[in-house]
């Protein structure tokens, strides 16, 4: 075995043994180091999928302790997530947690997210910023997220409080059933569809979302929601 592989296979913290955090990142050089460091400090194995960044995202992520998978060309967040999930499964992940790269998620939420999976109560834990967390969601964003919740209820038949939260945890079985084909942002709805179709058990878990100047700058514009909805509906129509 190659030495670097052996080193990666060695757990760094018993509490999160077998937990892979997958972070899709596109031009996140500014924030990625802090995000990775926060997760690595917990003993989580961090996999950053650098989605064709033009900045120093990959270097900063590696320096902070992440394994970096590089998409040579930008393929979108959905594609990057599936790449990281597939890699984690190949490497024997027991749990896969998806995490945003812009620093809006808190690593401290990780134990709470994993807990229902560890206890065998659910196969998937979906983070929700509207379930008692202290997130101060800006008004326009709140309205958009509420619309996304209604959209998910209509299209997928799944009632959630936060349909587009990037913080999610999957058991190995659940992660292996995921097959994201919507490469860009519509993957969030596709995940809900696949969860429903798989019949796996899911729970929503309260998590914090930090709205910093940086995360707001990097976040999706409200108008992009229309394109995301169109991508999703087209994906469902054409398979």
């Amino acid at each position: 075995m190659i030495e670097s592989e052996a080193r990666e296979a060695e757990p760094r913290g018993a509490a999160f043994d077998g937990v892979f955090a997958v972070i899709p990142a596109f031009n996140e050089g500014e924030a990625i180091r802090g995000v990775v460091a926060e997760l690595a400090a917990l003993g989580v194995r961090v996999v950053v999928v650098d989605d064709g960044s033009a900045d120093d995202t990959a270097e900063n992520a590696r320096a902070a302790g992440a394994t970096v998978l590089r998409h040579e060309i930008n393929r979108g967040q959905g594609a990057a997530l599936q790449t990281g999930i597939s890699y984690g499964l190949e490497r024997g992940a027991r749990f896969v947690v998806t995490f945003d790269a812009d620093g809006q998620h808190a690593a401290e939420d990780m134990p709470r997210l994993i807990e229902p999976l560890l206890r065998g109560e659910a196969d998937i834990a979906l983070g929700s910023r509207f379930l008692g967390g202290e997130s101060s969601v800006p008004g326009s964003r709140r309205a958009l997220l509420r619309a996304a919740v209604a959209f998910t209820l209509v299209t997928s038949g799944v009632r959630l409080t936060d349909a587009h939260n990037g913080l999610r945890a999957f058991s190995r079985r659940a992660a292996s059933l995921l097959d994201l084909k919507l490469d860009r942002m519509a993957h969030a709805s596709e995940i809900i569809d696949q969860i429903r179709r798989s019949g796996l058990r899911f729970v929503e878990v309260p998590v914090h979302v930090r709205y910093t100047e940086y995360s707001r700058r990097k976040g999706q514009r409200s108008l992009a929601a229309l394109r995301i909805a169109a991508d999703y509906l087209l994906g469902r129509l054409l398979g």
Binding site: R62, A63, L69, I73, T83
Partner: peptide, 16 residues
Amino acid sequence: TLLTRHIATANPRRPE
């Protein structure tokens, strides 16, 4: 996308 994924997962860059 599948090709990009294949190349990415075949060439992981380990932590420094």
